[in-house]
Amino acid sequence: MTPPPGTLLTAENLRKSYGPTVALDGAAFSIHPGEVVAVMGPSGSGKSTLLHCLAGIVPPDSGSITYDGRELAGMNDAGRSALRRSEFGFVFQFGQLVPELTCVENVALPLRLNGTSRKEAERSALSWMERLEVDDLKDKRPGEVSGGQGQRVAVARALVTGPRVLFADEPTGALDSLNGERVMELLTDAARSTNAAVVLVTHEARVAAYSDREIVVRDGRSRDMERAI
């Protein structure tokens, strides 16, 4: 099945089980460049697994995932890792910043994994930290900053490589509504300014309201609300 024209990332008929647990049961997904799509659904519905599959972290049992004309299922782990390094960015709920590194080193990390020199990497890291208003934390360690600040550092880290797709899994899950909304505002602003697509997994409606459209995952099946109406 060829993906609709203009889409950046498309998935069809994804299936994935962890042992006896069926996480995805024929889910589908598509996103355009610059689009923010919320993936909603009750917990345990398989929305995180959908994100992991789309990002090439977990290979699906069956189904196709096409990114920019390339089939992810046909890539080996090294290829998918390289794709994640260069084309994708990630923000998780928590536990993602390396506690030993300072904030600016954390933000610079993806660039350095791509082979950018330390100086260069930390310079662009700092400019992203400025955009997310956390540049004053650059020499602090993650253990010394608040949850909202840490999430903004994580967003800066996800965007520092100029990814074309940003995957965010409950990015505000551990934050109060004020901090959560600020993070969402900065995240969507930054993504729009770079024309990055955002896959936003959340169960919170007010977070999902920052998206352009949403799909609902229930019992491993997805439902695209825009197409349904």
């Binding site: 890792s81 994640r84 390094r85 260069s86 994708f88 993602q96 390396v98 994994l113």
Partner: peptide, 12 residues
């Protein structure tokens, strides 16, 4: 958890 998230953004 940290190792997994490092792996997610493409650490070899």
């Amino acid at each position: 958890k940290l190792l997994s998230s490092l792996l997610a953004f493409g650490t070899r």
